[in-house]
Design a protein around this nucleic acid. Sequence first.
RNA 1: GAGAGCAUACGAACAAUCGCGUAUAGUAAUAUAUGAGGAAAGUCCGGACACCCAAGGGCAGAACGACGGAUAACGUCCGCCGAAGGCGACUUCAGGACCAGUGCCACAGAAAAGUAAACAACCGAUGAGGUUCAGGUGCAACGGUAGUGUAAAAGACUACAGGAGAUAUCGUGAGGUAUCUGCCGGGUAAACUCCGUUCGGGUGCAAGAUUGAAUUAAAGGAUAAGGUGACCCGCCGUCUUUAAAAAAAUCGCUUGAGCAUUAAGGUAACUUAAUGUCGAGACAGAUGAUUGUUUAGAAACAGAAUCCGGCUUAUGAUAUGCUCUCUUUU
RNA 2: CGGGAUGUAGCGCAGCUUGGUAGCGCACCGUGUUCGGGUCGCGGGGGUCGCAAGUUCGAAUCUUGUCAUCCCGA
Length: 118
Amino acid sequence: MLQKKYRLKKYSAFIATYKNNHIVADDRICVYIGKEKTSDDVITKAAFVVSKKIHKRAVVRNRIKRLMRESFRLILKNNSFPNINKYISVICVAKNSAIDASFSDIDYSLKKNLSQIQ
RNA sequence: GAGAGCAUACGAACAAUCGCGUAUAGUAAUAUAUGAGGAAAGUCCGGACACCCAAGGGCAGAACGACGGAUAACGUCCGCCGAAGGCGACUUCAGGACCAGUGCCACAGAAAAGUAAACAACCGAUGAGGUUCAGGUGCAACGGUAGUGUAAAAGACUACAGGAGAUAUCGUGAGGUAUCUGCCGGGUAAACUCCGUUCGGGUGCAAGAUUGAAUUAAAGGAUAAGGUGACCCGCCGUCUUUAAAAAAAUCGCUUGAGCAUUAAGGUAACUUAAUGUCGAGACAGAUGAUUGUUUAGAAACAGAAUCCGGCUUAUGAUAUGCUCUCUUUU
RNA sequence: CGGGAUGUAGCGCAGCUUGGUAGCGCACCGUGUUCGGGUCGCGGGGGUCGCAAGUUCGAAUCUUGUCAUCCCGA
């Protein structure tokens, strides 16, 4: 789990990010990216979504969410993709094939997606 | 040794590094403590708690249904009775009433419930009338089997077992046992229904309480009519009051019919007392990642959302206790 | 947190109220018509009635539990 200041919270912020229509994806994870920052004071916020349509059990969904969070946390810590900091918000949505994936699989997919951001 | 019945335990542990929720301390950096389950699940019952209506009763409705107890309460639990199944340990049972009324019982069968038909038989006179077995049908045929009896027959009579009632006795009670009485016109209420018991009604923590900048002009209450099984909501008219609404924050929120141990009472469910103890509380929603060691092995079902008592369902590898039946050996 | 509906042949639906025979359309198979195909005519096959118990002589139908799918309200 990220610290509270890095979390995307508001319902309107989610809708605004989805409407921006800037998407990067592969077969496991789909990444929605928000608007560009106007000033450097704003912190980039992130959210992780696993739909109920992907799997019925809460345990499976929580597992995917936690793996994505852990991977994103390590990326933030090492600052390996500085392009993220140009944008306000990031939403990572898991897809159907993310079920039963290991940490290394999720980590590889997320890094591959984030590297495509300009 | 084989098979079976009942019940119980465990639900991986430790360490290092990087992280998250909450609490406490601190100006802060940070430090310390603590952090999912036996089902947290399904939401099938019962409560606590909160608000609105009503406060007296009835109708209607729903649930339940042998008996005695336990409990805050229950459709749950314990004990026990009866019935059914099993060689047995044991298991299962919505287990009140078709002498209040109404309905249904396909096919077959004379007939499926109405004081019961045709043929044969017998009495009679041949007619009217009276008595009535057996066979076969079917889940079920107006009591069963064997005999006595008679013109032929029939609980008309006898014996055996069954049901019902009465008396005696045992048990808190459901009921058990013994004796007596020919008293014996189907089944179905998980068909409508009747009887008894329980439930004030409704809404559910998004209940409900407090704070609140800018903005908007509406919101609440009372009364009468209509509608409804009933209540609530809603609509229209009149009167009256001045605050109200959405995003937001705080409270509700976790000390409770709590847990552990010991003792006492009780067949048991459970109750009482003493001592000790505090074990999640989020709000886009906290337990994760990597590595090492132990182990036969990083196993199953699965993630708290106001809180309790149950029920039901899902569940891996094993381990343990008691009991029953059969076989073999001593 | 609360409420409701559905499950029957490969597909879409009846039948359940009032329990005894499971049916309709399309699809499938055979056959006739045609030079051949379609259309049309005739005939035929195919269903543990979601699952498990119970009530009953007898259950798709009645009752209870359970599984799955879909919808609605706050």
